[in-house]
Design a binder for these strands. Structure first.
Lengths: 313, 313
DNA sequence: AGCTCCGATACCCAGCGGGTATCACAGGTC
DNA sequence: GACCTGTGATACCCGCTGGGTATCGGAGCT
């Protein structure tokens, strides 16, 4: 019955519909007409023996099976894309490691990591890939990056291995003239509803924004702009000094969750270069004096240390 | 240039050639003729901008890029298969969890795990999937199983999360009448070259066998047969009592590596059922008296504990 | 030289993925 | 209720491309 494997085209078509929840728009996004898309989805449903969408009047919704497939299809397509990307990169004349990091993340930490890496191994140059918040995992899964600086507990580490480097508290960034700026310390309750400094709203997965008084932002740089203009406040890890403008001050938020910065990489990586950076990161973690830092995922670091490397980078 | 995504068909074709290292045989295995296969590989090479095979006189070999793609393609195809399998299973009327385990693995441990699970959560029945040695990871990656009992350091845990349950030494299984059977303990050197009990040889990835005096085996049951006949000796974890025939004795091998049994699951799993089994396994690990056991991969268990489950099983 | 083995090339065909036109049907609207 | 609109399904046609057969080209081996 299964007869024949899935093709990535079918998964892409399905995902388009699953995300748009609208055959017409999905077809447009895919650059094809709507009828063949309908047919393709029907074929997929028959082949899988599962109803994927509930088409009732006025709208399409995902069934439980469809929900599972949406998640799995994303992972599978990422893996396929990773195959293509990593092969291309393996064939490229110049070998390098790509380290993904949020645009505004801690420069100090990044610098010490790069320095530590150069002490361990200097053969493969590290390229930096600045990305938007939360994008690191996708870059790793699709092979666009080899390593990423990520943050617990905010980022999703599923499918990744990681070593934690530093753990630190968070601070609120405020215009120096603001009343709250003179306080020694703040709580989350203090900063949650400040009338003249409403917290910015990020888009949900579907692109819409939650309701609220804060400005809508889509990128780190937009947010940076708003902070610089004194239009919003921000709660960020203490070391993210990129946000520190002269006319702003940082006040500790005592009950904000501790943020741990970690170096993450695809759990399936067998790259020697990745292993070298990970070793550098672990040195950094153990030698670090700032805060209690915690090595995590011993299985991960073990697998890199003990696995027979199959790729020269 | 990239123009257009990879299709799984191309990856399957490539993998067939990469494994056979022979276009004719690969084509036969794929059920197509050789010329279209050649063409497909060429197209793939052009699209990826990478030479994948070295075709010189008498044979085809993988290039470095080809080697990368072989590895990545396997992962990607596994992910696609997992998408299909998990969707089908999500649509199935009866929900269950599949636990993969080696055919001869420790019954006691398995029983305690199942018992512990039933104490925690009894809503979803657990199905057992017996498999050959080293197959567990593939079953997890392709969605054929949700959980697996695996062993460090022998199994490859890349891409999986795991909790360790017990760590134990290994014993040699010998015919009771054999001279070595009367010894209190043995070393690896003792058992390595016993003339009348040569260690069995397992096939390599390409299906060929290494040279040596021992019998060739392909499955656990073949090996069991040979052990029962007193034709080979075996070094296995102390608790694997399935191998214990009346006319055999187990002698500790003091310098054999410690074997840790762990419950593993795909790092991307968001299943409530998996989380329940993992909790049961962790209870088992902490409550266990046999040996120092070590919880591993805190990121993994964290992700299961904290992630919003998206699938009802 | 001639045979064999194997991958590449040339060329043809058909199946299927994609397009256009149209239908079916459910809500709104007046 | 008649009509319009928005949406997915159906019908049908077409051309691309994946697959088949025949053949070539070159490297070893007698």
């Amino acid at each position: 019955m299964s007869v024949g494997h899935l093709e990535t085209r079918e998964l892409r078509y399905f995902l388009a519909v699953a995300e748009e929840l609208h055959f017409g728009r999905a077809a447009e996004r895919l650059g094809i007409a709507q009828p063949p898309l309908s047919r393709a989805i029907h074929q997929l449903e028959t082949r899988l023996g599962a109803q994927l969408f509930e088409r009732d009047r006025r709208g399409v919704t995902l069934t439980a099976s469809g929900d599972v497939l949406a998640r799995e299809a994303r992972l599978a397509l990422d893996a396929v894309e990773a195959a293509s990307r990593r092969t291309r990169r393996a064939a490229a004349p110049v070998r390098s490691l790509v380290l993904a990091t949020k645009a505004g993340a801690s420069h100090d930490l990044l610098n010490s990591l790069l320095a530590a890496y150069e002490r361990v191994d200097e053969t493969v140059p590290i390229e930096l890939q600045l990305c938007e918040v939360g994008e690191q995992a996708k870059l790793l899964r699709t092979g666009a990056a080899d390593l990423a600086l990520m943050h617990r507990p905010v980022d999703d580490f599923a499918g990744l291995d990681a070593v934690d480097i530093v753990t630190e508290g968070q601070v609120a960034i405020l215009p120096a003239a603001h009343p709250l700026a003179s306080r020694e310390q703040l709580t989350l309750a203090d900063v949650e509803h400040v009338p003249d400094l409403p917290i910015a709203r990020w888009p949900r997965l579907d692109g819409t924004y939650p309701d609220g008084p804060g400005p809508e932002v889509r990128t780190q740089s937009q947010l940076a702009q708003l902070v610089a203009l004194g239009r919003t406040l921000l709660v960020i890890p203490a070391s993210s000094r990129a946000w520190q403008w002269p006319e702003h001050v940082a006040v500790p938020v005592v009950d904000a969750p501790q943020i741990t910065t970690a170096v993450a990489w695809p759990a399936t990586s067998r790259s020697l270069g990745v292993a070298a950076v990970v070793r550098a990161a672990m040195d950094l973690a153990t030698g670090d004096e700032h805060a209690p830092s915690r090595k995590s995922s011993p299985s991960g670091s073990m697998s890199v240390a003990s696995a027979a490397p199959t790729s020269p980078v």
